[in-house]
Write a protein that binds this DNA or RNA. Structure first.
Length: 678
DNA sequence: GTAGGGTTAG
């Protein structure tokens, strides 16, 4: 090998080197030629070692250098910071002063970055003060770094204060503000800053657009998202994989799954994150089947699902009650990936929604770190299974920890009380939430309380609570009151609630179905017709009810009156036989749960064709005697099916678990765990 | 000036 003398060419070689031995060779050459120790050659060596992850070798160069310039110190600090070794990065920075090396703009920038990575606000602010002292207060790089520190620590007020005082702002400073606001739930303010930026004639790039897209995602503002997308195309702004992924995410989260898929298909370079964005979009919008299919597709394209994409799979499993798949995903994450706080919470949620409350609890008890959301998940689990007492006991355990309950914790707790009919406990903890925790009750909390009271038949008290509200009660509250009135035959208050509901122009067909059910129960057929007319006019159709059941690791879905099933004849035979036996035991069909004004006999037929009945019959046909059946329904279970299922458990001597959109019903020996509160 | 701003999940 010919000796390469020039320091410049050695540095070029350094940049090209791909492994430790080749850097070491150049390192040796530098020592031989006497270049090492001059200029910033040691800084370049440190950078090269660090770039490939050889941080110990980098440190050796640093320690063995006769003297280190600021570049070498900076390179070493960056190396530690990138590796996540914040303590080493900071202690090097603190050592600089005693070794007589003056930090430069880069030093402050990278140290601030290190503090941001570890969310160390105190050290960050101290570094920022020192930077200002040393005359770097107007440096845009240092400025952007401190803005980002505040943004990542959730201190947007502080960021804004610094931003307002900045003499010079470049694109990165603007972007940091826009992204920071968007990620801290201040999406409108993010858009305001962008408008200011436009006024100053600063041209945005893809990263700015990404911040705006995130703002649209949280605002649910698909129109603006669409126009940003169009703007990028018109202005030829480069959309890399990150920007494109954020578009997929934005469209998917706003429910425009066709647009999301369209952007996704056109992406030339995809990665696991882009796949995950699309998968979670489908899962979150309730398209569990599509989400699961996408995971299969992803693998056939050579992408391995990671814990993030698997969390979406778990969500999909939760939605359809696919316990078998959920279990294997759980096993896979534990064995092969990182079972962190997020994935363990998703697993807890999956087990609980797939009917295995005890497995959910086991996972919860085993995990080493529990944050607010893990606690909320386990409390909510007991709630939907109707164990209000156990939900409360977990809440009391949570109070012993450092994790502070939030509005969602109380929403789950109150709803747990509601499902268990624990009215007094609900009243008590509602007041604790307000008085001790100073949590302003939201619409959701009021809805829970109204639900709790009116489920228990105390609709007058519920109405009093509504009257005490400072804010205008929203639709969820009137709906809760109305369902209570429907279940307890309180037609006077019910009528008032029904009118309020209709005034608020709900866009959910399920709500119209409830109003219509209410009037049907009151035998007010004119009003029923009126509601149906509104539904027709606004082009709304009742969401078709369906039930899903897993048998032998495969999912089977049933729609109401589903004749397409290959076992339809056998299913009808089973139902006919059950119907006969049920009636002999005293079962009377509750035909008031049918929407239409039809002949009694037709109504009865429609009832026994409800999707959950078909699923039960299918389960009885295809599983061994004594096997527990788990059925997942997309709507609330109807009152008649609820009654019938109780009879069926007695006849066939089986446990039947039905999960509806609100909670679990464990039917056994003619009784339901909900105690007929639901 | 490979120093600062960026993607998915409970």
């Amino acid at each position: 090998m010919r000796l390469v003398a020039g320091s410049k060419s050695l540095k070029t070689l350094l940049i090209a080197s791909k492994d430790e031995p080749s850097i070491a060779k150049i390192h040796a050459l530098m020592i031989l030629t006497g270049i090492f120790g001059h200029g910033n050659s040691n800084a370049k060596l440190i950078q090269s070692y660090a770039r490939l992850g050889y941080i110990e070798s980098a440190r050796q160069v640093f320690d063995k250098s006769p003297q280190c310039g600021v570049d070498a110190w900076n390179a070493m600090i960056i190396a530690y910071s990138r590796r996540g070794a914040m303590f080493e990065a900071l202690s090097l920075y603190h050592r600089m002063a005693s070794e007589g090396v003056r930090p430069d703009s880069s030093t402050y920038t990278v140290v601030l970055k290190a503090c941001t990575r570890s969310l160390d606000l105190r050290s960050g602010e101290e570094t920022w003060r020192q930077a200002v002292d040393q005359g770097y207060g107007d440096d845009v790089f240092v400025g952007a770094a401190v803005l980002n520190l505040y943004a990542k620590c959730g201190k947007m007020d502080e960021a804004m204060r610094v931003f307002d005082k900045m003499g010079r702002r470049d694109l990165v400073c603007w972007t940091t503000m826009i992204t920071g606001l968007a990620q801290n739930g201040q999406a409108r303010e993010a858009v305001d800053i962008y408008r200011q930026m436009q006024k100053k004639r600063v041209e945005g790039d893809g990263v700015v657009m990404l911040g705006l897209i995130q703002a649209c995602t949280t605002l649910g503002h698909s129109k603006m998202g669409l126009s940003i997308h169009g703007y990028m195309i018109r202005k030829d702004i480069i959309m890399d994989v990150i920007v494109q992924t954020s578009l997929v995410d934005m469209y998917a989260k706003n429910g425009h799954l066709e647009l999301a898929s369209c952007v996704f298909r056109k992406m030339l370079y995809k990665n696991v994150i882009s796949w995950s964005a699309l998968i979670s979009g489908f899962a979150q919008n309730g398209f569990a089947g599509n989400a699961l299919q996408l995971v299969v597709d992803m693998q056939s394209f050579g992408y391995k699902p990671d814990s993030v994409s698997l969390v979406s799979v778990l969500l999909a499993c939760s939605q359809v009650g696919f316990l078998k798949l959920g279990k294997s995903v759980h096993g896979y994450i534990v064995r092969r990936l990182h079972f962190d706080c997020v994935s363990s919470t998703a697993v807890i949620d999956m087990y609980s929604k797939c009917g295995s409350l005890s497995s959910a609890r086991t996972v919860f008890d085993q995990i080493s770190f529990r944050d607010l959301i893990s606690w909320n998940a386990i409390i909510a689990s007991y709630g939907i299974h109707g164990s209000g007492e156990e939900a409360l006991s977990l809440f009391l355990q949570m109070r012993e920890t450092n994790v502070k309950p939030d509005h969602a914790t109380f929403a789950s707790l109150l709803s747990a009380f509601s499902h268990s009919g624990l009215v007094e406990k609900g009243r008590y903890w509602f007041s604790v939430m307000v008085n001790e925790y100073k949590i302003q009750p939201s619409e959701k909390h009021y809805a829970c309380m109204v639900d709790l009271l009116s489920r228990a038949g105390r609709v007058e008290e519920a109405q009093e609570l509504i009257d005490s509200m400072i804010t205008e009660p929203g639709i969820a509250i009137w709906v809760a009151l109305l369902s209570g009135c429907l279940n307890h035959g309180k037609f006077l208050i019910g009528e008032m609630a029904a009118k309020k509901v209709l005034e608020l122009n709900p866009d959910d067909p399920g709500i119209y179905a409830l109003v219509s059910n209410f009037f049907a129960t009151a035998r007010r057929w004119d009003e029923v017709a009126e509601v149906r007319k509104i539904m027709k006019k606004t082009g709304m159709k009742k969401v078709p009810g369906y039930s899903v059941m897993e048998v032998n690791g495969k999912l089977h879905a049933f729609l109401m009156e589903d004749k397409s099933h290959h076992q339809y004849e056998e299913i009808m035979q089973v139902l006919g036989k059950l119907d006969y036996e049920m009636k002999a035991m005293g079962y009377v069909p509750k035909t008031e749960f049918v929407l239409h004004n039809l002949e009694e006999e037709v109504k009865e037929r429609m009832l026994c064709n409800h999707s959950e009945r078909l699923a039960i019959a299918f389960g009885l046909l295809n599983t061994g005697p004594g096997t527990r059946l788990l059925i997942t329904k997309n709507l609330r279970v109807c009152g008649d099916c609820h009654e019938a299922t109780k009879f069926i458990t007695k006849i066939v001597n089986r446990e039947i678990v039905v999960r509806d959109v609100k909670r679990f019903h464990h039917f056994k020996d003619g009784v339901c765990s909900c105690g007929d509160y639901w």
